[in-house]
Design a binder for these strands. Structure first.
Lengths: 147, 147
DNA sequence: GGACGACTCCCCACAATCGCCCACTTCTTA
DNA sequence: TAAGAAGTGGGCGATTGTGGGGAGTCGTCC
């Protein structure tokens, strides 16, 4: 299970270093094979290869075929299969780099079965305490939880 | 399974280079025999030859014969059989080149069993984060997935 | 039947990019 | 404070993408 946020840099070649604490788990679970793609949020989603395939299969089972086709065109059509190199880094392909302008700094968030990669300023806005934060909007939902 | 988007150029001779990572797979699966045709979207669709035949057969099995006839007239009638040359490129036939104005730059998208070839500006509009994007419309469908 | 032009296919060359390696810096821990 | 691990930047060779030249083929027109 992937958890936690890590601030990291995307260098000029578009490379990003996977935090060391995940590398061993990823080497075992998917032999370091990752898929980078888009989802509904303005960030990139990073899946272990087998998880990506599972979600793709789940899309095929959706009842609304028109929606399924559109979702799949994004999820599969924008996906990039890649591998963690010997330095523990992955290369973001040029077209995905353009999304949400990764100009140097990003935040990698563990999201249970995948990672989300946010541009740092967008992440600050969404998860910070400013006016764009999602925190106020989820307070009541939070309170339905037994915690 | 074909995935991912690649920005590429269609040169003045109407040639387009298949990204190297797909060439080996295409050489094995269909001996580099491709079929280029139209589908429902304003882009060209590129199939391995056997996949094209499978879809054509599927059209023959449609219950609504009137629709089947129309679909087949486009799918088969506009199709062009071609082959990847020794430089890894395919030639777009003149009639198909005119579709959707391929004026130099395009985006090739892997779509599981086929490729879609979009003019770059149309691709940006559809899959970008601007006003014409399909992303907002499929966000809720995305969120029904366990991912 | 020959000349011409359009088109296709193949080869070569150059430039950009990728992937790999190395080295330096920073941080943590003993 | 030293040693090791992790993060970061850059160099370099191999590969890939791209443009252009040229030979061969086909069809058309004179």
């Amino acid at each position: 299970m992937f958890t936690g946020s890590h601030q990291l840099t995307i260098d000029e070649k578009g490379r990003l270093a996977i935090p060391a604490r995940y590398r061993e788990e990823l080497a075992e679970s998917c032999r370091s094979q990752l898929v980078i793609t888009r989802g509904p949020n303005p960030c990139l989603e990073i899946y272990p290869a087998h998880e990506f395939l599972r979600v793709a299969d789940e899309i095929d089972l959706m009842e609304d075929r028109e929606q399924a086709e559109l979702v799949k065109s994004v999820f599969v059509g924008l996906a990039c299969e890649t591998e963690i190199d010997k330095q523990g880094r992955v290369l973001l392909p040029p077209l995905l780099r353009r999304y949400a302008r990764f100009n140097g700094s990003g935040v990698l968030m563990g999201q249970t079965r995948r990672f989300d990669l946010w541009p740092e300023d967008a992440w600050n806005e969404r998860f910070g305490d400013g006016p764009g934060s999602i925190l106020p909007g989820i307070a009541s939902a939070f309170r339905t939880l037994k915690r």
